[in-house]
């Protein structure tokens, strides 16, 4: 009799399971010889496939860029949130599921509060994110506004607004009272779908601890983002949050 869990093997192999699903599958895997065997078979049968790739020329300067970025990266003390298993071969989902930075219970405890007065929208100059598309800015309608709650020991405050513009959703973040950044550090906005973080804008603060960013959420309609959060990151390139959540709100 096939367990329903056995059907998740492919999505496990490709790292598509949520943290919860992944944990459940791994516990199933321990007791299911047929899944163990199939997984091993998948690993073996796909082992040579990378070599099917056409050799292509690497971009100019790639070596220099990568090696200097790699070495730079090590100068920043990474927070001890690294999950040791994330790079093991085999079906380890690249989204690091064991990260502890995101604490659902904390966010769940927060209350959503609407900013009713269409708080003055203004563009913050420190905007840094390349992906932002904020050159021409015309407000169409404010869909939602949220007040982010600060985590324990954090004094900061922030609001998030979703603005419908040209049929896309613009996320506008404005924050006050944030701790000063050092070196390359940046504040990073994330939107989360079932615990999976997606980058949603990067910003720095001015000398008064104020900062903000506008970010286009192209896929707002297909996605089901449930949380917004701000972390402090060692630089503008974090693909996964490395710092703790400073501010957050359910969406």
């Amino acid at each position: 009799m096939m367990d329903k869990q056995c059907d998740l093997l492919l999505d496990y192999f490709n790292g598509h399971l949520t943290n919860q699903q992944k944990a459940a599958f791994e516990s199933h895997l321990k007791d299911c010889p047929s899944c163990q065997e199939e997984l091993k078979e998948l690993e073996e049968l796909t082992m040579d496939l990378p070599y099917a790739s056409e050799p292509i020329a690497v971009p100019d300067g790639m070596k220099q860029r990568i090696l200097s970025n790699v070495k730079d990266d090590s100068q920043i003390e990474n927070k001890a949130t690294f999950d040791q298993t994330d790079s093991e071969p085999g079906p380890k989902p690249p989204i690091k599921p064991k990260r502890t930075w995101f604490k659902p219970f904390m966010v769940a405890a927060l209350t959503l509060s609407l900013v009713g007065n269409g708080a003055a929208l203004y563009y913050i100059n420190e905007q840094k994110d390349d992906a932002d598309t904020g050159e021409s800015f015309s407000v169409d309608s404010m869909k939602e506004a949220y007040t982010l709650q600060a985590s324990e020991d954090i004094e900061a405050a922030a609001t998030a607004m979703m603005i419908e513009q040209n049929r896309e959703t613009n996320l506008i973040i404005q924050a006050n009272n944030l701790p000063e950044l050092k070196g390359d550090e940046k504040y990073q906005v994330w939107v989360l779908e079932e615990g999976k973080p997606f980058r949603a804008g990067t910003f720095v603060t001015n000398q008064d601890g104020k900062g903000g960013v506008s970010y286009t959420l192209h896929d707002m309609k297909e996605r089901n983002y449930d949380t917004i959060a701000i972390t402090k990151e060692p630089n503008a390139n974090s693909q996964q949050p490395q710092g703790d959540i400073l501010l957050s709100s359910p969406l």
Binding site: N14, G15, P50, P89, V191, R199, R223
Partner: peptide
């Protein structure tokens, strides 16, 4: 190393999908 590389790619693909 190739497995790590594949996972890194899948990870990026998932993230970039969110940026359309």
């Amino acid at each position: 190393l190739l497995t790590i590389t594949r996972n890194a790619c899948l990870d990026l693909l998932r993230k970039k999908k969110s940026n359309d």
